[in-house]
Design a protein around this nucleic acid. Structure first.
Lengths: 138, 138
DNA sequence: TATTGTTATACTCTATAACTATA
DNA sequence: TATAGTTATAGAGTATAACAATA
């Protein structure tokens, strides 16, 4: 059976991403987290007081989809919202949120290590830079 | 604003894939095709008489989702189904399907070239091999 | 008994339009 | 007038269970 798709780096990029995301979803399932929720936790943890609008921009998701996401993190007691001004909220992790974030990092680091295991050691940096250039300079 | 995600090759892989897929979807919109439909056309074109079950395996999609996909390609007169035995159909492109496939290749080749433009020339092959290893040997 | 294709359905993720309140 | 957050909703894309017909 011929497979012309095998010659296409773009197709490989897609398949690699899906494969990795499947594994990540599996790992996050134990934490009761979706992928985007985990990235939001990371950014809130690194930037206490960050606003929803900042998350929207950094994660490149739609504003309306941020609402139920943050609501769920707050509902579980992982994130707190404090009014910054009359229309925006600053987000911070609760102690429970910090603890959860630590577990997120375990899952993520395991995944990244597995990913990197398929990249020659001397190629890891350029591999990363190339992927970053693709989405940032497309 | 700190962004710990920027250090993660896996996150870059995801963002790169999404960015590229957005561009591909845009290109395929002119052809009235979805991404998976375009990959099915490629495989049918390269393997006349291929069965749905073969597509399902090669594209790693679910069998039930193949049904409306092939039905749409047939409905538009791009693909013909011929009974191979009592339970399976062999798929072939019609002349209209071949013409459409040529246009798919134009879109795909443009996209691949744009993708590759972000990869150093001497790195293209290893970049491709690395991505392939990730999804095939995960 | 395993395989092929099918039907019906559900779930997740993402996108759009329109609204309120505030800067 | 532009921005932040919200509401409601719609659309892809993908997944599962169960079935009929055939190998």
């Amino acid at each position: 059976m011929k497979d012309p798709l095998a010659k296409l780096p773009g197709y490989a990029l897609r398949r690699a991403s899906v494969t990795m995301m499947d594994a990540l979803s599996e790992g996050l399932k134990d934490l009761d987290l979706k992928f985007t929720e985990s990235t939001a936790l990371v950014l809130i943890g690194a930037n206490p007081g960050i606003r929803q609008a900042d998350l929207v921009e950094m994660l490149a998701i739609q504003r309306p989809n941020m609402v139920p996401l943050v609501a769920r993190l707050e509902m579980h007691g992982w994130v707190e919202r404090a009014a910054v001004d009359g229309r925006s909220f600053g987000l911070t992790l609760t102690p429970a949120g910090e603890a959860l974030l630590n577990r997120v990092w375990v899952v993520v680091n395991d995944l990244e290590q597995r990913l990197i295991s398929h990249v020659r050691t001397d190629q890891v940096e350029i591999f990363h830079k190339t992927l970053t250039a693709i989405w940032q300079n497309w």
